[in-house]
C-alpha cells in the first residue's frame, strides 16, 4: 500500500495539472471576440508548429534534425503522412545508431 504522503503528492500534482488544462479554457470565455488576444490565438498555431519542431530539434540533436528534415521532404514529395513518419523514424534511428 503506498504511503499517504506519496498519494498526497500525486493527488496535488494531478489537481494542479488539471486546473491548468481546464483553467485556460474557462478563462477563454472572458476573452472578447475580435480582441487582440483572440486574434493572436487565431494566428498562433502555424507559428507554434514551427517553434515546436525547432525546440525538438534543439533537444534531440542531429538525429532529430535529420529525422525531421527527412519527414518534411517525404511529406512534400508524397503527401503521405505514414511514409513521412516511417522515413523520419528510420533516418533518426540510423543517425542515432551511427553515433
Amino acid at each position: 500500500m503506498p504511503e499517504w504522503h506519496t498519494l498526497a503528492a500525486i493527488g496535488v500534482l494531478g489537481l494542479v495539472s488539471y486546473a491548468l488544462r481546464s483553467g485556460g479554457f474557462l478563462a477563454g470565455s472572458l476573452m472578447r471576440e475580435g480582441s487582440a488576444l483572440a486574434r493572436f490565438f487565431q494566428l498562433a498555431p502555424g507559428n507554434l508548429f514551427v517553434a515546436f519542431v525547432a525546440a525538438a530539434c534543439l533537444e534531440g540533436g542531429l538525429a532529430s534534425i535529420v529525422g525531421c528534415t527527412a519527414s518534411l521532404t517525404v511529406m512534400i514529395v508524397t503527401r503521405k503522412e505514414w511514409a513521412a513518419l516511417a522515413v523520419g523514424f528510420a533516418a533518426a534511428a540510423l543517425v542515432a545508431g551511427a553515433r
Partner: peptide
C-alpha cells in the same frame, strides 16, 4: 538506444507532416 531516440522524435516528425498545410 537508437530506437528510443527515434521514437522520441515521432511527435516532432508528426508536427512536421502538418507544416505543408500551414
Amino acid at each position: 538506444g537508437p530506437i528510443s531516440v527515434a521514437a522520441a522524435l515521432l511527435p516532432a516528425a508528426f508536427i512536421v507532416t502538418l507544416l505543408p498545410t500551414q
